[in-house]
Amino acid sequence: MKQHIIGRTGALGLASALLAIAAAASAQGVVSPAPERIVAKAPAADPPPPMRVQNYRPVFQECHDAGKRRLLAIRAMSVEARRKLLVVDPTSLATSLADEVDLTCADTNDAAQKDTRFMAAIAASAQASGHASTAQPSVLQNAGLSHGAGEGSFITGDLCPSRKPLDRAFLQGIEALGPATPVSLSISGLWLKRHGADFQWLLHEARAGALAITWVNHSFHHPYVPGRPLSKNFLLTPGVDIQAEILDTEQILIANGQTPSVFFRFPGLISDAATMDAVRGDHLVTLGADGWLVFMPPLRPGAILLVHANGNEPEGLRLFSKLLGQGRLPRPFRPILEAP
């Protein structure tokens, strides 16, 4: 697939808008990297092999480190036979991997943590149900956090499974706005498995300080069948194990040395009540978008911009560059952790 259904099939009635945008943007190029862009040595030809991650499972615990800092553990696992926890700072929403032995933890629950910014963000995104499909009322479209707080906007790029290479030129254009330009990449497990060189390039750019990447969970398989009704498509496909789609993506990120964030974006921005409950139950914030460029600007401050950097949406990337050059995208670009 391998784009969201809104841009591919006109499920939201935007096919004509997309065609108009493609025509208007056809003469526009991506943002050219500025000469001062951070340049680092090319990534190593042979990256380290993935780490062994086992017994990966959801938990919910309140933990304290040696400095009495409060953290919330949402996953437990072993990494190379060392017991680890994926923990969230309940105020900043930042995630990290911690050695279990370094923390003092006890089981907790949603009610006990309801006053934290973390739980408030989860609850708000779960209640933001987007809008129901006219033809299929049980289907939710663009549910979750679709607009951020404050000024500026938030760049998010989806990495759905694709046969095409990563659009590095577009990302280099983003880097020209930096250093450490914040960008959230919604990554599918299959994209990571099939695009090892592109993934290593992204890590190289982040280590060089050119990009500040937040990894958003975009499911592992990102199922999609053209022409199939939405109620039986994407993660609503019969037989899909929603929790496996969530956990397997987190696990492959960790195996490759990266830390998953607290955000989850549904493939196609398509969900229903049951899948929304599953994401909430795994203590993740559902991420939508109010600035998918096919919606046409002007965009409001706080816009969550959505483009595809997986090679499948050149028109959207050109339009982004055009709007950026015209000063029509809300600035500054901010980390997605500041959106809820």
Score class of each variant (00 low, 15 high):
residue 223 P to E: 06
residue 210 A to K: 00
residue 135 A to Q: 14
residue 133 S to E: 13
residue 232 K to L: 10
residue 161 P to N: 06
residue 152 G to K: 01
residue 193 K to P: 01
residue 183 V to I: 13
residue 199 F to M: 04
residue 123 A to I: 09
residue 93 L to E: 04
residue 182 P to K: 05
residue 125 S to A: 12
residue 173 G to E: 00
residue 137 P to C: 11
residue 210 A to Y: 00
residue 126 A to S: 14
residue 113 Q to I: 12
residue 124 A to D: 11
residue 154 F to G: 02
residue 124 A to Q: 13
residue 233 N to P: 05
residue 100 E to S: 15
residue 174 I to K: 00
residue 186 S to H: 04
residue 171 L to M: 06
residue 191 W to R: 04
residue 176 A to S: 13
residue 192 L to F: 01
residue 157 G to W: 03
residue 182 P to I: 01
residue 229 P to E: 08
residue 234 F to Y: 13
residue 171 L to S: 00
residue 150 G to Q: 07
residue 144 G to Q: 03
residue 126 A to I: 06
residue 145 L to M: 11
residue 184 S to D: 07
residue 142 N to L: 11
residue 130 G to H: 06
residue 128 A to W: 05
residue 185 L to P: 03
residue 163 R to P: 10
residue 96 S to Q: 15
residue 164 K to I: 05
residue 227 G to M: 08
residue 200 Q to S: 14
residue 111 A to Y: 12
residue 108 T to D: 05
residue 170 F to L: 06
residue 167 D to Y: 01
residue 185 L to H: 02
residue 203 L to C: 15
residue 196 G to H: 12
residue 202 L to A: 04
residue 206 A to L: 12
residue 143 A to P: 06
residue 150 G to K: 06
residue 201 W to E: 04
residue 152 G to Y: 04
residue 231 S to I: 11
residue 157 G to I: 02
residue 94 A to K: 15
residue 167 D to S: 11
residue 147 H to I: 13
residue 225 V to S: 15
residue 161 P to I: 02
residue 183 V to W: 01
residue 182 P to Y: 03
residue 108 T to A: 12
residue 175 E to V: 00
residue 181 T to F: 03
residue 133 S to L: 11
residue 174 I to Q: 02
residue 168 R to T: 05
residue 237 T to F: 07
